[in-house]
Amino acid sequence: MKKENKKYVKAYSLSEILVVLAIIGIIILLVMPNQTSVVSQAKSLEAQNMLAHLHGLQKNYFYRYSKYTSNLDDIGFVQEKTIESNGQAVYVITIQEASNSGFIARARALADFDGDGVFNEWQIDQDRNLKEVVKD
């Protein structure tokens, strides 16, 4: 009878791999809450850019008619399709008030970035004062 030599390959066992995956999962769960502020900052750039664009359109309207308008169609502002209507825009733009001497426009988030029930809002006026009114 011939004796067979069995050679074993050094490898990790299934239980060792599962332990490593569990540890990686726990680390990811610990890091994820810290990333929500980064996500909300990135999303707020959308609001800031749209409000800056709206400011330019309002200024052009003011130079033509010597007043500001509360109608987005008058200045040619087209709201991107929002996430509520299967689009990608997270913010909806509204003009809160407009007069001969100024305007206030707001961008309100349609999504709660950190799950606390507060929706992010940005505001701009005729002097291009851009500020975060409601922090998320």
Rank of each mutant, 00 (worst) to 15 (best):
M1L: 08
M1A: 10
K2H: 15
K3M: 07
E4Q: 10
N5E: 12
K6Y: 09
K7M: 07
Y8K: 07
Y8Q: 07
Y8G: 06
V9I: 14
A11W: 11
Y12T: 14
Y12G: 12
S13R: 15
L14R: 03
L14C: 05
L14D: 08
L14N: 09
L14Y: 08
E16V: 01
I17W: 09
L18W: 11
V19A: 15
V20E: 13
L21S: 09
A22F: 15
I23P: 08
I23C: 14
I24V: 14
I24S: 12
I26N: 05
I26G: 03
I27C: 13
I27M: 14
L29T: 15
L29H: 15
L29C: 15
V31E: 13
M32E: 08
N34Y: 12
Q35R: 09
Q35V: 09
V38I: 15
V39Q: 01
S40Y: 05
S40T: 12
A42H: 11
K43F: 04
K43E: 06
L45H: 12
A47L: 01
A47Q: 00
N49H: 03
N49Y: 04
M50V: 06
M50W: 03
A52Y: 08
L54P: 00
H55F: 12
L57H: 04
Q58F: 11
Q58R: 10
F62A: 11
F62C: 09
Y63L: 11
K67V: 14
K67M: 15
K67S: 15
K67Q: 15
T69L: 06
S70K: 15
S70R: 13
L72R: 04
D73W: 05
D73E: 14
D73F: 10
I75K: 09
I75R: 05
I75H: 12
G76I: 04
F77I: 04
Q79K: 02
Q79Y: 00
E80A: 13
T82K: 05
E84N: 15
N86S: 09
N86C: 04
N86G: 05
A89Q: 07
V90Q: 06
Y91E: 05
V92K: 06
I93P: 00
T94V: 01
I95M: 10
E97A: 13
E97F: 10
A98M: 13
S99H: 11
S101M: 08
S101D: 11
S101L: 08
G102F: 08
I104H: 02
I104L: 03
A105H: 01
A105I: 00
A107G: 09
A107N: 07
R108C: 00
R108S: 04
A109R: 02
A109W: 06
A109F: 04
L110D: 05
L110R: 07
L110C: 05
L110V: 06
D112H: 06
F113R: 03
F113S: 06
G115R: 02
G117M: 00
G117D: 02
V118A: 02
E121Q: 03
E121L: 02
E121F: 02
W122K: 00
W122I: 02
Q123C: 02
Q123N: 08
I124S: 01
D125I: 05
Q126H: 07
Q126T: 02
Q126E: 07
Q126N: 07
Q126C: 03
D127N: 12
R128I: 01
R128A: 03
N129G: 06
L130E: 02
E132P: 00
E132K: 08
V133S: 09
V134R: 03
V134C: 08
